[in-house]
């Protein structure tokens, strides 16, 4: 039994490493998904990101008419999470990104006003920056959540103590 100790711990460590390296290339999916998009010319252009800021590649993108919800076009995201999908010209689109493993996110894709002095590429970069900020998990949110858990535990302890008396 004594000799089995280090071997087993060793085996656990090795198995962990091997499995981790083996499947490290597979995307881990347990995150939130965010998407940003805008209409440019005859296409809808955008990017999908997971909440750890890794690009969401290979997801299905559906372009809907926001008026009657009809599906206008569909496509997939590339390796960098970006997509460019041709769609009939409309003022705005509803973009739904869906993965097979239960991820789904949607956003509104608007068109820059005609004659606007803004450059479409610049606006897209700004939108992607904003989406990245939105997707990022902030420390104050984590600390706030821990505060709620602590408060709830305190509340339950107080109720239990009252009930005991």
């Amino acid at each position: 039994m004594m000799s089995a100790r280090p071997t087993l711990a060793n085996m656990v460590c090795r198995a962990t490493l091997a499995l981790g390296l083996l499947a490290g290339s597979a995307q881990t999916f347990a995150h939130g998904l965010r998407v940003s998009a805008q209409a440019e010319g005859g296409a809808v252009v955008g990017q999908a990101l997971y909440s750890d800021l890794s690009p969401a590649s290979g997801l299905f993108v559906d372009i809907h008419d926001p008026g009657n919800d009809a599906k206008l076009a569909e496509g997939t995201t590339g390796d960098d999470g970006r997509f460019r999908i041709l769609a009939p010209p409309l003022a705005a689109y509803r973009v739904v990104v869906e993965g097979e493993e239960g991820h789904r996110a949607e956003t509104q894709a608007l068109r820059l006003a005609a004659g606007s002095t803004l450059d479409a590429d610049t606006v897209r970069l700004l939108r992607e920056d904003i989406a990245r900020l939105e997707a990022r998990i902030r420390l104050q949110d984590i600390l706030g959540g821990l505060g709620y858990i602590l408060g709830l535990a305190g509340l339950s302890a107080w109720f239990m103590a009252k009930r005991r008396r």
């Binding site: 460590c13 962990t16 499995l19 981790g20 499947a23 881990t28 999916f29 493993e101």
Partner: peptide, 11 residues
Amino acid sequence: AHLPVMAADGA
């Protein structure tokens, strides 16, 4: 997708 998670959780 969850093999690495399973390994980490198991360890």
